[in-house]
């Protein structure tokens, strides 16, 4: 199975919203949920891959996501303070939906990079375990 980026993105976005605990989260709640998922993922990955590798992948994920959502460069940490979301809540010019999509893109690219290196069969169980989600991402065309 090879996950397409859109389905992985949808999976992450669902997890992000679920982590807020509300159906229609505000900026602060999204920022907090992003921090939570990002930090849990790091905690899951660091014992396996080491801090250096996890940081490097995160920085690359932010870089790739920024090409699509340029505003990410202003509000998401470049890796010096991974997962720091202080600035996210303060960005009021962004639509909630765009903010959720951009944040989901960062985490989805992070997972996508790991998939590319060591494969979904190894990575996705780690992600599900880190985030406490049972649902797995679905490929295009799957119900």
């Amino acid at each position: 199975m090879t996950l397409s980026a859109p389905s992985l993105r949808r999976f992450v976005r669902r997890a992000l919203v679920d982590a807020t605990g509300v159906a229609s989260p505000d900026r602060a709640q999204l920022a907090s949920a992003f921090d939570l998922l990002c930090e849990r993922l790091r905690q899951q990955l660091q014992p396996l891959f080491g801090t250096t590798a996890v940081n490097a992948l995160y920085v690359r994920a932010v870089h790739v996501a920024t090409e699509e959502f340029s505003w990410l460069s202003e509000i998401v940490s470049n890796g010096q303070e991974p997962c720091a979301s202080d600035r996210i809540a303060s960005v009021e010019a962004l639509e909630i939906d765009a903010l959720a999509e951009g944040l989901a893109a960062v985490l989805a690219h992070n997972i996508g990079l790991l998939n590319a290196f060591v494969g979904e069969d190894l990575v996705l169980p780690l992600v599900q375990q880190a985030w406490g989600v049972i649902e797995a991402p679905r490929t295009e065309g799957e119900p």
Binding site: F49, L114, F117, V118, L122
Partner: peptide, 20 residues
């Protein structure tokens, strides 16, 4: 690096993902 190690070790037939 573990990332590379797991990437390449997976190519061997003995690597059993179910055990990882």
């Amino acid at each position: 690096p573990t990332l590379k190690m797991l990437r390449y070790q997976q190519q061997f037939t003995f690597f059993d993902m179910a055990k990882v």
